[in-house]
Design a binder for these strands. Structure first.
Lengths: 102, 102
DNA sequence: ACATCATATCGATGGATGTCAATACATCGA
DNA sequence: TCGATGTATTGACATCCATCGATATGATGT
């Protein structure tokens, strides 16, 4: 999870590296299935991977793939409980994104 | 430019239509070239399409394509001045995104 | 150790996307 | 009206990405 640059978009011209970093985090969010996952986890405070295929209508491998992307982007945090994987939203990461956009 | 739903992500579970709408706007932002365009325009207050190929190192058709996506997403607003196309950032649209993420 | 269940990885595939060259369209000045 | 210039569209191509079935990995309880 790269550090997410910088100052608000309009403060100064975004450099190449910062643009890449910000784009990759936004890309992780920019998918309807992943947004539903983040929303469900945020609304409940936490969420178990076992519930998400039913919630989204997607297969277990697909959900696993999406969750990995969100974790890699620093948007979700993963916690193993027995054989279940639980996730929480990294509120600070979302706030970081907002602080750049606005 | 669709109306961008809803309440913060963690307030209630995001519906299918809202997830699609939000994802499409985020997708418009989630590209390094487009982020550089938005940043340049925001920093200067406005920007002319004629300057962007040099700024980004991309061809004129590529820039035109990216600008269209940003306008379609409601992130930029286009204004024709003679034969030049000028753009401004729709601050309200960015604020709308932030109000959903945080 | 073994069977079971939850999750991750692999391989394949169809569709979306960024990019450019070529060309069309639009606007202006002469 | 005509040439010049800025922008949009078209067509093609390579790459990326979401998705799934099959399978591997990991953890638990017996």
């Amino acid at each position: 999870m790269n550090e997410l640059c910088c100052v608000p978009l309009g403060t100064q011209q975004l450099g190449d590296a910062d643009a890449e970093a910000l784009a990759s985090v936004l890309k992780a969010l920019a998918d309807p299935v992943r947004l539903k996952l983040v929303s469900a986890i945020a609304a409940a405070g936490e969420g178990c991977a076992c519930d998400f295929p039913a919630l989204t209508g997607k297969s277990q491998p697909t959900i696993s793939h999406h969750l990995s992307q969100l974790v890699d982007a620093g948007i979700l945090e993963r916690e193993q409980r027995g054989k279940w994987a639980w996730f929480q939203v990294n509120e600070a990461r979302l706030a970081e994104i907002c602080s750049i956009l606005c």
